Amino acid sequence: MTDVLPAELGEAPSPAAAAAPQRPAAAAEQRIRLRTFTADGLLALLGSAAAAIGFCWVAYERILPLTGALGFWLLGYLFFLGVYGVVTAIVWGRRAVVDRVVAAVMYSTGLLIVGIILDQIGYTIYRGEPALRHLNFFTQTMAQAGARDPLTVGGVLQAIVGSLMQMGIATAIAVPLGILAALFLAEVGGRMARPVRSLVEAMTSLPEIIAGLFIYALFVLSLGFERSGLAAGLALTVMMIPFVARSSEVMLRLVPQALREASYALGASQWRTVWTVVLPTARSGLTTAVVLGMARAIGETAPVLLTSGVSPFMNTDPLHHWQTSLPLFIYDAVHYPQQSMIDRGFGAALVLIIVVLVLFTIARTVGGKAPGELTRRQRRRIARDLYATSLERASDASA
């Protein structure tokens, strides 16, 4: 016998059922925010900062014979942390002291780092802006210009081309070798993993001048090649390989082991698992490691100073003759007493910053897709295949 609901029989619901509270269909989700700024927290922060500044002013101007802006702000910061800890203990209890003081240290450290970076970029823009006003700064070389010539003559075109060519040589050699070394350390291992990792870590802290001396002694003095863009690219390669290898190993170890095990369970070999699972999953991290390695190498002066030389002429042949780069141009220009050359040096520094930002943007655009995300060409090919398959099925059905 089937159960019949009272509503189906036309009966009224029982008083208990009518009095029961009706639950909503879907409870509204409330987002929990762990870090929020409240009025009490903001007033405690501002009050502690004001108290620290007032204490330091009294100490420097009235009590102690102290001078100097660095000591003033350092003492004020230490006193701010102490006052903020006391205020936190009074208002929120002792358990919140460590959390809030450490949070204040982290936030202030981050603001300090961002402020230093913005100050350096702003000062470079301020000093290099007179040179960037003129289009010839990007389209001409210093072959027909001297140190006393105005900024309307000459430019850094030869340095831009030299930097891009040397960076291209270094990237083409260092990226495959660095990623292969990282794959060996993270996926293969064995007895040789420990000495290879030790060598990579030792080369990571290698001074830049040592890389230049190594290539100069081996490539120029021993093998008899001349100082050129290729020698500079090899010096940058020596610097990039350990950095790319170490950073890539960290990114590869972040790939979950369950993905590898699932691939092995489907019958895939190790190289197939690495090629189709591990590398696509770590693609964004590997791209970041490569970009960081390029950013570190493209601004180095000591290795290229020993291996390429400074030249005011355009040289698109990296195998022969000197080939200057942006770091070398900056190093050479700021040593001139003429203000026009100093302005050119700061302008070249700003161009170097722009080049690094452009390379970073391109790398993030190319390698920043999520694992498994298809490119536009792949999506078009899949759509084309589906359309062809649908036409074949339609023709078969009509036949």
Rank of each mutant, 00 (worst) to 15 (best):
Q30W: 07
M1I: 10
A211E: 03
A370F: 07
L183E: 06
R191D: 06
G285N: 06
A28T: 06
D343W: 12
E29V: 13
D332N: 11
V105A: 12
Q158F: 00
T204K: 08
R95I: 09
R377H: 05
A147G: 06
V355W: 01
V366P: 01
L292A: 11
V238W: 09
E11A: 14
E226M: 01
L326M: 13
G224W: 04
T124R: 09
A20Y: 09
I179D: 03
G293N: 05
A211R: 04
R393D: 10
L326Y: 06
A51E: 01
F214H: 02
F55T: 12
I160C: 01
L359Y: 03
D149V: 07
I90H: 09
V200H: 02
L81F: 07
L9Q: 15
G190L: 09
V304N: 00
I160D: 05
P337Y: 07
R253L: 13
L306E: 00
S263T: 07
Q378G: 07
F329W: 00
S311H: 02
A193F: 03
R62H: 13
F225V: 02
I298F: 07
T2G: 05
Y336N: 07
T67D: 13
Q166R: 03
S263P: 11
N315S: 11
Y123V: 08
Y387S: 07
I116K: 07
G309Y: 00
G190N: 08
V304R: 00
L183R: 11
A25S: 11
L305R: 02
A103L: 15
G267P: 06
A245F: 01
Q339R: 13
P312M: 02
V87F: 09
R94W: 10
L266Y: 02
E226Q: 15
A348N: 09
L64I: 12
I330M: 13
R35L: 15
Q140F: 09
M341I: 08
R95K: 14
P303E: 02
V161Y: 01
T361D: 08
D332A: 13
L305F: 11
G233A: 11
F243Q: 03
Y84W: 08
R260F: 05
S205K: 08
I382L: 15
F138N: 10
M167Q: 03
Q144I: 05
S311I: 04
L112A: 15
L259R: 14
L292G: 05
V97L: 07
F184E: 14
G309S: 01
A363F: 14
R384S: 12
P242H: 04
V101S: 04
L305G: 03
L5H: 15
F37K: 03
S395E: 14
D396W: 04
I362L: 15
A258L: 05
L43S: 06
I90A: 10
L352D: 10
R380P: 06
R35P: 08
